[in-house]
Nucleic acid binder design. Structure first.
Lengths: 398, 398
DNA sequence: TCGACTTTTTCCATGGACTGGACAAAGAGT
DNA sequence: ACTCTTTGTCCAGTCCATGGAAAAAGTCGA
């Protein structure tokens, strides 16, 4: 049986504000809401009644008394469903959330973006169908999707993506919206990770921060005043090709000495294989022997087992990343730096190395109170951010 | 005779909007204003009448007919005066502007910030008195002031300024406000330069850009969505101590390889003196002989005269700055980069060197349409920005 | 069980914000 | 003199929003 999807949108800024409060704060009484939005109780009641009429919000019984009349709680209609898709360089994540953006179902599959949008869409839609069949959703009120490259945000179209050439100009937003029959928003995967950590992770209630994602490549989500900064052409945060060594290693991008030539999933795997072949690490050599090739994960487990070469690789990489972050911290003076992405499995060795470098190189005033932490959402960050992206869009005045 | 200063402030957002429009667009008819603010003509008339009552706005005769009834122009009260002060490391600028932020009088004097706030204030107030005596103003409706270091913006107090130790915690805002009897806002000098170029220079109508100021040191004003980004502790834009060389030259800050160890007024003068002593340039040696020491200006004039060593110094420095800017461009993806400050006398040699480096190192998507230009306001940028700072403050809802 | 007190919600009169339309004023063009 | 255009003013009506009064629904102690 088909559920009627919500098509209503908040009619004004007050309603939008209320919807977001309900999303982020869970069920709430009218009185509590009144304290948070600057509105008289009368006006508040009117707006809530209107939201109830639209079906976006439903009554949620009576709260426990706090010494007086019990309050009538309201909450977002729990039938609302958002879809979050996170397309990485080598895998896809698909998740379904409730209106509070909590994940109800989550699938992850390996994939290669370079196979192009059509193949990837097929795979992704199959994953969506599987989630649907599992019963967590019958349809979607909105979907957010992240792709590993710059996006022309208003149109929802990838633009000149270096690692996914076939996607240039592919109308992701349009295509997915057609397929799902609901509103869709598209963004860079790194920006979505930042939004995810802001929604439900370490960056809650931080206005200015950035979020460095170290996966196959290296990117950075920039948040200013609670809003993602996308830049003039949508390429803000593209820090993977900042130069860290004057006449350094050649990089696929054509330059020399780029950060990504020294660290990130690709560089780490390549360096580990070289070390294994040079016989620097018995541990790595053995793994290379059996698997035929090495990945960042191999380095991670070897390091955890105490392999010195692997630890050195991580420390060196961390120092390179730290060097870049140190510069950005001086420039941007954030209140928090989040490190996330696939290689967070490298954990505290990496983090320590980054911290050392940043605290040594940046100005005391900028680092004095600057936490540098790992993201706490892991693979859920991207899809959570995707859900937040579309819900922010839908929960804004029509 | 004392003029009664304006104490009125806009009562609501509409009035604030109108005041800013009048400031930036000059005299205007009601009809034109109506097209730019989204208000009915009735409501507009009411708000303008109220502004007329406050005295902030005055009638300005009739405009020429455009085929119908002539419009009644209004403009800001031309008796309004703003004071802009720009305290640099080695000089002070003081200027008076009309309500449209055009400079009516401007003084510049050499000075050493390290003499401390009391001495500098004395000198500055004497300059203000001189301007007053010259008849451009009898009093001020507001003042903006820039200092060469980080500022705790809400309080208007310098915080941990490296090059002006005696100023730490000195209540600049409070003190100047007391002295002048008008509202005062304080900011970093680099931020003010950015605001100046945004108000009346190359950055008009650009939302996201940054403004690199190369004076004694090197700093950077960061503008996001038309607003200056000051960072969590007010130190955003402090790029002078970003590392450009791994185990590079020692820097007074304690680290090695900082940008300021390679370029900026101080470094350039030092390098020029070394070159002169080593006999690399007859031109510079001669100047050193006569003056006893060299400044960035000497290098500038020598370069203009074709001195190869000086040109090399500028080119090398530009490459260093360009290297840092390239990284920041990748990170921030601005729509414009402005180069300003004392050493802009180095002109197009410097600019060309910076451009080469940035266009080579940053991603094509970020640089594809990125102008890198010299500021067009020169020494007026800082004081114009200071005037804009206070007028933005005064022209916002009470 | 009965007041006294709290807290929440609803109701209502009032005032202000804002709009759109009618109308007047002032000019251009014919 | 007439029409057309542009601008400014007036006004009635609508919607927004507030603050206070009153009602509803509860706790708690006597």
């Amino acid at each position: 049986m088909a559920v009627r999807r919500m098509t209503a949108r908040p009619a004004n800024a007050h309603q939008a504000r209320l919807l977001r409060l309900l999303r982020d704060g869970g069920p709430n009484s009218r009185a509590e809401l009144g304290d948070r939005v600057d509105l008289s109780r009368s006006k508040l009641a009117v707006e809530i009644d209107r939201l109830l009429e639209t079906g976006l919000v439903v009554a949620d019984g009576l709260a426990a008394s706090r010494g007086g009349r019990r309050s009538h709680n309201v909450r977002l209609n729990s039938e609302l469903r958002f879809l979050g898709v996170d397309i990485g360089a080598t895998s896809v994540d698909v998740a379904v959330t409730n209106p509070e953006l909590e994940i109800l179902g989550h699938l992850n599959q390996p994939m290669d973006v370079r196979e192009g949008p059509v193949a990837v869409f097929d795979q992704m839609l199959a994953m969506v169908a599987k989630l649907r069949d599992s019963g967590v959703a019958e349809g979607f009120d909105g979907a957010g999707i992240g792709v590993p490259g710059p996006v022309r945000f208003p149109e929802g179209v990838p633009v000149a993506p270096p690692i996914m050439p076939g996607w240039d100009g592919f109308p992701v937003r349009e295509a997915l919206s057609q397929e799902l029959g609901c509103p869709v928003m598209v963004d860079n995967d790194v920006n979505l990770m930042a939004m995810g950590e802001m929604q439900a992770g370490v960056a809650r209630s931080v206005g200015d921060f950035f979020c460095v994602k170290i996966g196959t490549g290296i990117g950075c989500g920039v948040v200013v005043g609670g809003e993602v900064h996308r830049g003039t052409t949508g390429s803000a945060g593209d820090i993977g090709h900042i130069q860290v060594e004057a006449e350094g290693r050649p990089c696929p991008c054509g330059n020399r000495g780029c950060l990504e030539a020294y660290f990130g999933g690709s560089a780490l795997a390549r360096d580990a294989e070289a070390a294994a072949r040079d016989g620097l690490s018995a541990e790595l050599s053995a793994r290379l022997e059996t698997a035929g090739r090495l990945t960042a994960e191999d380095v991670s487990t070897a390091a955890a087992a105490g392999d010195g070469t692997s630890l050195d690789l991580i420390r060196d990489g961390g120092a390179r990343v730290g060097q870049v972050i140190a510069g950005l911290v001086s420039f941007f003076n954030p209140g928090l730096v989040v490190i996330g992405g696939g290689v967070t499995g490298l954990g505290h060795t990496l983090l320590a190395s980054i911290r050392t470098q940043v605290y040594r190189q940046s100005l005391p005033l900028a680092t004095g109170n600057l936490p540098i932490v790992l993201g706490e959402l892991g693979p859920a960050a991207g899809v959570t951010g995707a859900a937040r992206l579309i819900s922010d869009h839908l929960f804004s005045p029509a």
